[in-house]
Amino acid sequence: HVAGLVMFGILSPLLEGIGINAVIPLVSFFLGGGGAATDFVTRTIHTLFAFLHVPFTFRYLLVFIFGLFIARAISVVAFGYIKGWIGADFLGKESEDVLRRALLSSWSFSLKQKIGTMHNTLVRDVQQTGGLLGAVTQTIQSFSGFLVYLLVAMNISPVMTFYTIGGGAVLLFVLRPFVRHARRIGQQTAGVEKQFAQFLSEHIIGMKSIKAAGAEHAAIKNGTAHIRLLRHLSIRQGFVSTMSSSLFQPFAIVLVVLLFLLTYHAPGFNIISFGASLYLIQKIFTFYKRALALRQERRGVQTRP
Rank of each mutant, 00 (worst) to 15 (best):
P177V: 04
L172P: 02
F287K: 11
L175H: 01
F51E: 05
S244I: 00
A135C: 08
F8I: 00
S28R: 01
I70K: 07
I10P: 01
T189L: 09
H181V: 11
V148S: 09
I272M: 08
V136D: 05
I45T: 06
T44R: 04
A190Y: 01
E96S: 11
G84E: 12
I82D: 11
A293W: 03
A78G: 06
L292I: 05
F90S: 14
A36C: 03
E297T: 09
G168K: 00
K211P: 11
Q141I: 03
L68E: 04
G92K: 12
G84N: 15
L292T: 04
H217F: 11
S108E: 13
P13V: 00
E216R: 09
Y288I: 00
N270Y: 06
L147N: 03
I235M: 10
I165R: 01
A78K: 08
L172A: 06
I18D: 00
G35P: 04
E216N: 10
L230R: 10
T38N: 11
T47A: 08
R290G: 09
A252M: 13
A22N: 01
L11M: 11
S273H: 03
V256E: 01
V77W: 06
G87P: 02
Q127N: 15
A135G: 09
Q138C: 01
A36P: 02
L61P: 02
T286Q: 14
I115C: 05
A219M: 14
L229T: 14
V240H: 03
A88V: 14
G131Q: 06
A153C: 11
L52Q: 11
Y163N: 10
Y279R: 08
S142C: 08
R299I: 13
M118L: 14
V2A: 07
F58L: 13
G34Y: 08
L48M: 13
I45Y: 05
L68W: 01
L280N: 03
R59C: 06
R295C: 12
I235W: 15
L99Y: 12
L103Q: 12
R176L: 00
F173Q: 02
G116C: 02
F49E: 01
V123G: 11
A37N: 05
K208N: 07
